[in-house]
């Protein structure tokens, strides 16, 4: 079989692409640990978090955990991934979507008392979009249907 110059170029490009893909995979693997935007409360519990620098915790705001201090700015709440829970204290303005039972990402450090002192609190919303009535109906159905402790993702 005669390999035309054109085919040869195709093959070379194919090989080149494969190599680049491989290189990217390796780089990504190496950087995997640095690509972590936030850690879960379970990881915090196991100590799998940076010790000297600040980091972010992501999870749900635990139901009934939100308490506002009298100064009106300082808030206490807990972040949970349903397995473990981390208490957080934060002084500042909370985003509009910050709610109990909803996603949250907090940046800060763990204090000596084990309380996470957040310098920034961001809301992480999910990928569901629906009218309020539908959300309400869904919630009712869930309350009646099951007593499962699994939180909707």
């Amino acid at each position: 079989m005669v390999i035309k110059a054109r085919h040869k170029r195709f093959i070379l490009i194919g090989i080149g692409l494969a190599l680049v893909g491989l290189a990217a995979m390796l780089i990504l693997n190496a950087f995997q640990s640095n690509m972590v935007f936030f850690y879960t409360p379970t990881q915090v519990d196991k100590g799998e978090v940076p010790h000297n620098t600040g980091f972010r915790i992501g999870g749900m705001v635990l139901e009934n955990s939100l308490k506002r201090q009298d100064d009106g700015l300082t808030v206490h709440f807990s972040i949970t991934d349903t397995a473990k829970t981390v208490p957080v204290v934060y002084k500042g303005v909370l985003p509009d979507l910050f709610k109990e039972g909803k996603g949250v990402v907090a940046q800060g450090k763990v204090g000596p008392d084990g309380i996470f002192m957040a310098s920034e609190v961001l809301a992480k919303h999910d990928e569901n979009y629906m009218p309020p009535e539908a959300a309400e109906a869904l919630k009712r159905a869930q309350e009646q249907g099951s007593t499962s402790l699994v939180m909707p993702k």
Binding site: L94, D96, L97, E120
Partner: peptide, 12 residues
């Protein structure tokens, strides 16, 4: 900005 509370984050 209005939803998360930030204009930008360095997430993936």
């Amino acid at each position: 900005k209005p939803m998360w509370g930030t204009w930008w984050v360095w997430d993936a």
